[in-house]
Simulated assay, not measured.
Amino acid sequence: MTELAFDSLATPTLSPEHSQGGARLSEWGVIRAEGADAASFLQGQLTSDILGLASGAAALAGYCSAKGRLLASFVVWSPAPEVYLLACSADLLPATLKRLSMFVLRAKCRLTDASGELALWGVAGRDAGLPEGPAWTVRPAGAGQAVRLPDALGLPRWLVVQPAEDAAPVTAPLDLAAWRWLEVASGVVRIVAATVDRFVPQMVNLELVGGVNFKKGCYPGQEVVARSQYRGTLKRRALLLALPAGAQAELKEGQEIFHDADPGQPAGLVALAARSPTGEQLALVEVKLALARAPGAFRLGAADGPLLQPRALPYPLPSNDD
């Protein structure tokens, strides 16, 4: 693994029969922010430029602690004037909503959990029949809206939000495992309860996929995030690592990763993991870059744990990362 070429590794794969359709995303939830000050309130809380968000556009955003560690990640867009929807992991939504609500104070912004009235669907495939367009565009889709997500493994993907009682947005069902596999393969992190307060955004490549704006005003942890960006080289990044089908171990968010070159201490942490419908496992894993370039291999859970195989990210890592 010396001088590992992160962009010349084998690419994860997904069989054609698992590459088309829609899956109900029960592990996602939705926070609604509404009111005359909704945009300015979110501007002061999230890593993305919410005030600069154009009509018909969505943004990837992080929500950090004062120490710059991610407490949540969101897909954010405005379905109507003075209304914003924030899609995130359902397992951290209650705590995140409570924390955000503490800082509303006198702002004219009402925050509520809209998960009971709105359903989120993940749709993938070239024959989905949903509006095309660049990543992070938002278009009407039936009684709801479709957010175009970044492609994964060459497949277009959408996050569809619609009334909970409505029928599926597409006819063909998609295996939820296939959707999760595509999500991990896209290299776009989703913070879950097991990884809350573990990563500065750059550790999981959030700024590389458009989730951090370094020109906007202050937000919690902004100084730490900016210092991590501009003080020099970054020491930790997220890579894709895989376990072959048939492996007895299971990749899970929050698990520690070790490396042969420094077996006495953890080399990183699993940020997001999935098992494909055919059994192979894939994870976006935050690691020490120095170890990624050292002789040896990453292992799951312990210094003598199962061997993890590197896979190609869909985007390059900056050449000045150390």
Rank of each mutant, 00 (worst) to 15 (best):
T195S: 13
A152V: 05
D127I: 01
D175H: 03
A168P: 01
W181T: 15
A226G: 02
L149E: 13
Q162S: 09
V200Y: 03
V224K: 04
Q162C: 13
P163M: 00
V147A: 14
L120V: 15
V200L: 08
F199S: 04
A119T: 15
W121L: 10
V188S: 13
A185F: 11
P140D: 09
A185R: 11
R126E: 12
R198Q: 09
A146E: 03
Q248K: 14
R237Y: 11
V184H: 12
V188H: 15
L206Y: 09
A119P: 13
P134T: 00
V196T: 14
E253S: 14
A249Q: 08
Q222R: 00
L118H: 15
E250N: 01
L241H: 05
V209R: 08
L120D: 14
G211E: 07
G133H: 00
S186I: 08
G187M: 13
V184P: 14
A168C: 00
V204M: 02
L130I: 07
E253T: 14
A172K: 06
K215H: 03
P220Y: 01
A167W: 01
G142P: 01
W158N: 07
S186H: 07
T171P: 02
G246L: 11
W181L: 10
V138H: 00
K216Y: 11
P244R: 02
A238M: 14
D197G: 03
L155H: 11
R236D: 03
R227A: 08
V123G: 07
P150T: 10
A168Q: 00
E132Y: 00
Q162R: 10
T137C: 04
K252Q: 09
A164Y: 02
A141I: 09
A226L: 05
A168T: 00
L239F: 15
G217M: 04
R236S: 05
Q145L: 13
A143K: 11
L153M: 05
G129T: 11
E183A: 10
G142E: 01
T171Q: 04
W121S: 07
S186V: 12
P244G: 03
P140Q: 06
R190H: 15
V204N: 02
L182F: 13
V161G: 01
M203D: 01
V192G: 13
R237T: 15
A193E: 06
